[in-house]
Write a protein that binds this DNA or RNA. Structure first.
Length: 521
RNA sequence: GGCCCCUUCGACUAGCGGUUAGGUCACUACCCUUUCAAGGUAGCGGCACGAGUUCGAAUCUCGUAGGGGUCACCA
């Protein structure tokens, strides 16, 4: 029997990391066994349906490299792959169940069901459909349906005994049938519920392994019952652990508590291979203990048996750390350059006109200092602008180093061998001659070149910027010193006034006075 | 609450009867150093608890506790 796996997301919102997670495992398992991986769209909830969601899910899978072998927009022999286009199929199957007496038409209104549940709660019983529609005679059901009365089709479930199934990772799971209600199969709008649709589609699409999130464990017995009713054989079930929020309880991952949108990680500069690698370490591990591995490496050795069942917390720090490792160790500078380029252009910075060699040099010194493409783009932008904007702190540092900058401007202009060694030699000799600590000279120069105090080594900076750019930047820095002395900096004056006002207000309130303006940790 | 599932450092995990319980992230210290990083070295820190099986349990069984999931005409 050939392996067929699938993911069945609902097009209801942002592409979810949970979808990516389950897709990864389904994809890896299918590839490992030379099988097929299907994308099926569960768009049977027309309330929550979003038309752009389908394209975004597909884009997410493509971005991650988890492209389905069959699916909407992809094609395949078992289509269509949108459930909304398979309504006839579900109706036919519901009719078959009706004919076999495994299901029945139920005519309770929403109000009636609400009342029933309220009544149950009043008597301290668990709320849930009590099977009251089962007693309505077949011919009456059909007559009322034929007359156009709105109704649903429900599964007739056993009242006693147990229903069990084997979960590949957990062993046998047994659930008392008293826990299983007469579930709705076909809604009054003619759309199937998840339970009918998933069973029919998995069967028709010959899905061999159902790898889905753990939240489905308790509804699997319904699917077992449905398979029985159709006299179909069961696929293999394996329920993956649920990704968790980083809160105290580790509840199921949710967008209320954290960012679950793959698109937003993508926009935040997370690399697809890093996200994939990260998700691959959630509940799964390499047999040899490697922490950094490619999708292909995962496929090569993938075994469901290596899945651990404790719910893994989606830890952003680990994701970012992994991303940083890809940025500086796994990808070539050229590859990183290719990926930041579009972002640089978006920021109103340089675009195709950016010199490739310079870009690569900049990335080379910057990438040990960033975790995401977005950070890289942000830090890199200053290396391409004509004129840097210096903040108050920078101005101060420039001002204190003014004479050094003037000296160095002359020295660099006269430097013949403008390479790493020449620059290094020049700087060291200068510092020695002046008999001042390195930092006294280096820091103003660093600020002149980059506008910030946390930046790569000055020798590297000067070398990659080259003579012309270096001199230009020192020149600009000197200009800015003379134009706006720190004492006149309007921004600083504004902040000071603000801080004073705040302090006065606090003092007036009788609170203890604390410096609030420029606390630095 | 009923039912189901789960439980190794703060986080991700290795372990599948005999290990000084290993690795990664985070954190701390030190080294390197012109800043910030990166890198290097070291450290901190864990088998939820209680019984049982066994010569021997993180590993097997049971119980307790804790956590999660689920109880819709949503998936």
């Amino acid at each position: 029997m050939s392996v067929v796996t699938r993911i069945a997301p609902s097009p209801t919102g942002d592409p979810h990391v949970g979808t990516a997670y389950v897709a990864l495992f389904n994809y890896a398992f299918a590839r490992r066994h030379g099988g097929r991986f299907i994308l099926r769209l569960e768009d049977t909830d027309r309330q929550r349906f979003q038309s752009e969601a389908e394209a975004r899910i597909l884009a997410m899978l493509t971005w991650l490299g988890l492209t389905p072998d069959e699916g909407p927009g992809v094609g395949g022999s078992a289509g269509p792959y949108r459930q909304s286009e398979r309504l006839d199929i579900y109706r036919e199957h519901a009719n078959e169940l009706l004919a076999r007496g495994a299901a029945y038409r139920a005519f309770e209104t929403a109000e009636e069901l609400d009342a029933m549940r309220a009544e149950q709660r009043r008597h301290g019983r668990d709320p849930g459909y009590d099977g009251r529609g089962r007693t309505l005679p077949r011919d009456e059901q059909e007559a009322r349906a034929a007359a156009g009365e709105p109704h649903v089709v429900r599964l007739r479930t056993p009242d006693d005994g147990h229903t069990s199934f084997v979960d590949l990772l957990r062993g046998e799971v047994r659930i008392p049938n008293t826990e299983i209600r007469d579930t709705v199969l076909l809604k009054s709008d003619g759309f199937p519920t998840y339970h009918l649709a998933v069973v029919v589609d998995d069967h028709l699409m010959q899905v061999s392994h159902v790898l889905r999130a753990e939240e489905w464990v308790t509804s699997t017995p319904i699917h077992v019952l449905l398979h029985d009713a159709f006299a179909w054989s069961l696929p293999t079930f394996a329920h993956l652990p649920l990704l968790r929020n980083p809160d105290a309880n580790k509840s199921k991952i949710s967008k209320r508590k954290m960012d679950t949108s793959v698109d937003s990680y993508r926009e935040g500069g997370i690399l697809p291979e890093a996200l994939l690698n990260f998700l691959g370490t959630m509940g799964w591990s390499m047999p040899d203990g490697r922490e950094v591995f490619s999708l292909q490496a995962m496929i090569d050795v993938f075994e469901l048996e290596r899945i651990s069942l404790g719910g893994p917390v989606f830890d952003l720090k680990r994701l970012r750390n992994l991303n940083a490792r890809y940025l500086r160790d796994e990808l070539s500078v050229e590859e990183v350059a290719r990926r930041v380029r579009p972002t640089l252009a978006l920021d109103g910075g340089p675009d195709d006109s950016v010199d490739d060699e310079y870009l690569c040099d900049v990335i080379d010194v910057l990438r040990p200092r960033v975790e995401t493409l977005a950070e890289l783009a942000e830090k890199a932008s200053g290396y391409f602008v004509e004129r840097l904007a210096y903040d108050e702190d920078s101005r101060k540092r420039l001002a204190t180093g003014q004479s050094y900058l003037e000296d160095l401007e002359r020295a660099f202009a006269a430097l013949e061998w403008f390479d790493e060694d020449g620059i290094d030699e020049l700087l060291h000799e200068y510092v020695q001659r002046q008999a001042v600590p390195m930092g006294k000279v280096m820091m103003p120069l660093r600020v002149a070149l980059t506008g910030t105090t946390d930046a790569p080594g000055v020798v590297d900076l000067v070398a990659i910027m080259g003579k012309q750019r270096t001199l230009q930047r020192i020149g600009h820095a000197l200009e800015s010193i003379s134009q706006a002395l720190p004492d006149d900096d309007p921004e600083r004056l504004r902040l000071e006034a603000q801080a004073a006002a705040k302090e006065a207000a606090q003092a007036a309130k009788g609170k203890q006075r604390r410096p609030v303006a420029t606390e630095r940790g």
